[in-house]
Nucleic acid binder design. Sequence first.
DNA 1: TTGGTAAAGGACAAAAATGTCCGGTATTTG
DNA 2: CAAATACCGGACATTTTTGTCCTTTACCAA
Lengths: 147, 147
Amino acid sequence: MFSKACEYGIRAAIYIGQQSTDSGRRVGLKDIAAEIGSPEAFTAKVLQQLVREQLITSVKGPTGGFELTAEQLRTVTLRQIVVAIDGGAMLQGCALGLPQCSARQPCPMHYQFLPIRDQLNELLRTHTIGELASKVHDGLGFLKQFG
Amino acid sequence: MFSKACEYGIRAAIYIGQQSTDSGRRVGLKDIAAEIGSPEAFTAKVLQQLVREQLITSVKGPTGGFELTAEQLRTVTLRQIVVAIDGGAMLQGCALGLPQCSARQPCPMHYQFLPIRDQLNELLRTHTIGELASKVHDGLGFLKQFG
DNA sequence: TTGGTAAAGGACAAAAATGTCCGGTATTTG
DNA sequence: CAAATACCGGACATTTTTGTCCTTTACCAA
C-alpha cells in the first residue's frame, strides 16, 4: 500500500504527536525509532522530509528533538504525510497503470476502483495526527507490536 | 497500488482473454507488449509466472502463443493474478506496516482501513478475466492509451 | 564562551524491482 | 528430417528503494 518510508513516517508522526500532547516534551530520534520499531538512520531521513514540509517541527541541540505544535496536531492530516513522502500517484493513478486513465478512455476496472480510491482519499483526508495520537494515548491503537 | 509487473500481468491477461474470446486465436508476446504498451522482455517474465500458476496457457512453436481456455476465461479472477505476482501482502497487511496488526493490537487506523481493504478484496475476487475481456471487446474499457 | 548534544545533510552500501539479452527447448510446417 | 517459430530460463544491467555512516550545523547550558 504505502512505501516503508511512508509507514515509518506515519508511525513516527503519530508517536511524536502523542508525546507532544501527553507531556509537551520533545522526543529524540533514538527514542522514536525504538518506540515505533524502525531503523534509526533511515527514519531520520524520513523525518527530515516532514520537517521540510512543515508537517512536524524539529529543534537542534540539547533538549532538542521533534515535536508537533498545537496547530500541527490539529491540522496535519494523514494525507499530507502520505503525499509528502510517497507523492500523489497512489492516490490518483490508474490501478492498471494506464498513464491517462479517465472517463474518456477508462481501464476495464476504472469505475469499480473509483469509489474505493475515493474512500481511501477521504479516510486519509479526515484523520489528523492529533486524533490518531490521542487514540494511541488511550491505548486504543498501537505503533509497534508488544509481548 | 500494484507493482509494475502486476499491472502488466493484468493488462496482458485481459488482452489475451479478449483475443481468445473474439477469435479463439493465440497471441504472441510481441503482439501483447505492443497492444498493452509494456516492455516485451519484462512482460515475458510476468507471463511465465502466470503460466506456471496455470492462470493462462502457452503453446510453443509456430502458431503458438498465449491463450485462455474457456475455463480460464470463466474462472480466473483478478485476485488470482494479483496474488500470483505481488503476493498477498497488499491484500492482507497492515496499512501502517505493523507485522501483527489485528484486533488484539490494532494500529490506529486498523478499523478504518478494514472496510476499504475488504471492498478491494471483494472487487478483485468477483471480477473474472473473461468478464473484463468482454468489456474491452465492447469498447467499454481500454488496455492502452490511444489518440 | 565553550563544550556537549541532537538534528541536518552528504556520501556510500545493500537489496529489491524493473528491464534486457541470449542460448535452449518444444512444436509445427514444408 | 530440417528449418523456422515462439515460449522458457538463466544471466546480466539498470534504477529505485531501503538502509548506514560520518561530518557539519545549530542550539542550549554550564
